[in-house]
Simulated scan of single mutants.
Amino acid sequence: MTIRELAKASGVSTATVSRMLNKNGFVSKEAEDKINAAMKDNDFQSEKRIKRRATGEGHPKQLNFTMLWTSDIRASMTGTGHDIMLGITETMRVIGANLVVDYIDSDGSVPKCLSDKSCDGIFLHGDHLPKHHADLVKKRPAVWLLQSGDTEYGDRVQPDHWGLGVSAYKNMELQGCKNVCCISHTLDSISLPYWHSRLEGFLHAGKFGKTKYCNINTAYTDPLSSPEDQKNIAIDIVDKLEKISPRPDGIFVANALGSYIHAELKHREITPMKDIYMISGDMDAYGQFLDSETVKIDIQGRQIGKLAAEAMLLRIKNPDMDKIKYFTEASLLTP
């Protein structure tokens, strides 16, 4: 029985089951009772199950995995990158597996994990891989993390960004906001980036809510681009925000521009959380520490890593099953 099947039997989410099994995060007493009852009914033993699934009954094998960063290596240095690797590592440690970290060089050379036959599976985070690299990845189990990267192969573990957009709208509605706005980027690709999924959830909630809503879209800017570029985009956003009549009293920054927008608002003597309620993006994005008093988004990277490891072990056991997309819960953190 997988944690997905256990979640279904318990009547709770997969993320809730994983939090309880890994003792990582809050789980209500009611949910614990349901999960324990389902475990008892199905003779579910998590640690033994993981070891059997990873190695095979009677055939112990040292498993070797690679965490491959497919884009800028600095992405691994964010809080989310750190938490994801912690989550994967904790599960790998239970089964005695090895985990190494690698990345794609700008010169296009092939990372060792893609040519090394001892690599049993690859965790991927970042942009699409060049065709030659992708063809090599497809030869072994792969799990994509978060929402970027190729959707044609590999399983995927990502936060429920659409649901997060819904939560952001409802949160501002509960705060008594009368006119709210979601700040995102213009969509210029076929695949939906995380910030667009958040926008879609926000707009969906707005259609059924009582609070007036709108959105401001800007051209996409890489979070790793220069601070000056991001500052200029924030100035343009706040210009547009001030032209809306009446000016929104609540904003949801769905992308990574929260700290720059926060700084520009203060520069214009508009105080976030006083003059305008602000949900300003992921708590570990670049520069987000500058506006710690706003509402933050916690996508729970460690939980994503743990679930990704579970997904990898399930894939090894069932190599021919259809690819699966797993969603984890994200939460809003009030100051």
Rank of each mutant, 00 (worst) to 15 (best):
G25V: 12
H125L: 10
M1H: 04
D239E: 11
N255S: 03
Q300F: 12
K207D: 10
E5D: 08
E329S: 09
E264K: 03
H196I: 14
E32F: 13
L129W: 07
M20P: 02
P223D: 07
H59P: 00
I216W: 01
D72P: 05
S18D: 06
L314S: 11
K266A: 06
L146P: 01
G301T: 07
G154S: 03
L68F: 03
H196N: 12
M273A: 05
T2W: 13
I251D: 04
D249H: 14
H161G: 05
E269Q: 06
K8G: 05
D229I: 05
W69S: 14
I297E: 13
T334K: 07
I316W: 08
E293W: 04
A142I: 01
G281R: 11
M278R: 04
P159C: 04
P60M: 08
K34E: 12
L164C: 08
N232F: 12
L174A: 15
G176E: 08
V238E: 12
V137R: 01
D160Q: 03
S28Y: 11
H267S: 15
A54T: 08
L136P: 00
M77G: 05
M92T: 02
K212G: 08
R247M: 15
K48D: 04
N24P: 00
I297L: 15
E32Y: 02
Y103G: 03
T89K: 04
K325R: 07
I84G: 01
L63I: 03
L68Y: 00
V238T: 12
A309H: 06
S109K: 07
R93N: 06
A168K: 07
N24S: 09
S71D: 15
R74E: 15
N64G: 00
N64T: 02
G165L: 14
F289I: 13
N42M: 07
K317G: 05
H125Q: 09
L307Q: 09
S225P: 09
K274P: 00
M278A: 15
